[in-house]
Amino acid sequence: MTDWKNLCALEDIPRLGSRVVKTAGGDLAVFRTSDDRVFALNDKCPHKGGPLSQGIVSGDRVTCPMHGWLIELDSGNAVAPDQGCVKRHEARVEAGQVLLRIA
């Protein structure tokens, strides 16, 4: 586990949207919900690797743009009946800044 890092300002991520984060270990997606919580997942759908960052965020879930799987933002789990899980990372908001800790 690495240290907490300052990623960007909360305002840099659209509400009900996301940003792609390039890391040495591949792309992550950081999501912002309508009530300004943030979540970070690998940007790779457990189904066929679709870019989750490009999906539509609603509630605490994102819909993959490729074949419409629903992924829970907090657990990274696919919503039944689909099965699968994408790796999570820790993310939080502090003083208007988004902090990220890559797992």
Partner: peptide, 11 residues
């Protein structure tokens, strides 16, 4: 019923 709708109704 849902806070932000879903990927079907929002578009």
């Amino acid at each position: 019923r849902t806070p932000n709708g879903c990927a079907t109704c929002r578009p």
